[in-house]
């Protein structure tokens, strides 16, 4: 039992341990790595993925999944980009992007709750639909944004880059909802045991409906933040972002089986960790073809840890039929 407990504690703080290890390794290999400029750089680069992953965490907590976030990012910036080109104001375009996120999230939640289709299948469908819709909208051409957009990405308020500010606001809002509101606690309850939640009088369907909308809106925000950094809407914009978002959440200790995980420190740490690894590889001039290999190794490790933890918890929680005397 004691050994198991020790392992459990280690598993609980794996992300933090991994984070420390990564900083130590890269820090000792390159002096540039630990400079404040580079740290800000890492945060800026990870903000888009982190925002999407925060939305994803809400969904994962209910034991669901949202594969459509990459496509939502694409459609959101495609719509916003078109509007900016047509001459609409930046603010209005941003609102339109958020609306796209809301509508897609709502579509997902209606299909999942009302028609009782599995989240995996529903969001796989909206993944293809969104990608196709966006390609049709942009006529599969890349759109280069006017300078106003990229300037927004480079601008600072009180010395902090705007992407980081948006990231921090989403983080604060998400963390507040999860920890300080009845909705947040009920999300955990539903993820822990939907049947018990129903019996306890929680409106399970409403909760499921809300999390996919939150995920969609976060994807739209994350998409726009990415747009201010890249300055262009390409046909592959947001492609496979769903995987980095899920990976970030899982790496941060969110369970794919629901009910377990946090936005802060969990998911945020996961998102920043993935970015940190990539940043470190860049600084060390590692062959770029190796990046995906290293990232995938990190993700595999994270999923392995999640499964081990769940199995162990299940084993500890199994109800004994008889209580053995202690010798």
């Amino acid at each position: 039992m004691t050994l198991q407990k020790l392992i459990l504690v280690a598993l609980r703080y794996t992300t933090l341990l991994l984070f420390g290890a990564v900083f130590l390794v890269f820090g000792s290999l390159s002096s540039k790595f630990l400079e404040p400029v580079n740290v800000v750089n890492i945060l800026t680069q990870s903000s888009s993925t982190a925002i999407v992953a925060i939305g994803m965490t809400f969904v994962l907590l209910t034991a669901g999944v949202d594969l459509s976030v990459g496509s939502i990012m694409f459609v959101a910036v495609a719509v916003a980009g078109k509007m900016i080109f047509t001459g609409y104001s930046l603010g209005l375009s941003i609102c339109a992007a958020l609306c796209v996120g809301f509508v897609f999230g709502r579509l997902n939640s209606i299909l999942i709750v009302r028609f009782r289709i599995m989240p995996f299948i529903v969001t796989l469908g909206t993944l293809y639909f969104g990608r196709g819709f966006g390609l049709w909208l942009t006529e599969t051409r890349a759109m280069n944004m006017p300078d106003a957009v990229t300037q927004l990405g480079a601008a600072r308020i009180a010395g902090i880059p705007i992407p980081i500010l948006i990231f921090l606001s989403v983080l604060a809002a998400g963390h507040f909802v999860l920890t300080q509101t009845p909705l947040g606690r009920q999300i955990y309850a539903v993820g822990n045991d939907p049947e018990a939640a129903r019996k306890a009088g929680i409106r399970v369907n409403r909760i499921l409906g809300v999390v996919y909308v939150l995920s969609g809106v976060c994807a739209a925000i994350g998409g726009f933040v990415a747009l201010t950094q890249t300055g262009a809407v390409s046909p592959t914009f947001g492609n496979q972002k769903e995987f980095s978002a899920i990976a970030a959440a899982v790496l941060g200790g969110t369970s794919l089986f629901g009910g377990r995980g946090t936005i802060f420190p969990g998911t945020v740490l996961g998102a920043v960790l993935i970015q940190t690894v990539e940043n470190g590889l860049v600084i060390l001039n590692v062959d770029p073809y190796l990046y995906p290999l290293v990232t995938s190794a990190v993700i595999f490790l994270a999923v392995l840890i999640d499964t081990t933890r769940t199995n162990l918890l299940e084993k500890l929680g199994r109800r004994p039929i008889r209580v053995e005397p202690v010798r």
Partner: peptide, 9 residues
Amino acid sequence: QELNLFSNL
């Protein structure tokens, strides 16, 4: 008999 509590809360 099977308690309806949420063990994660």
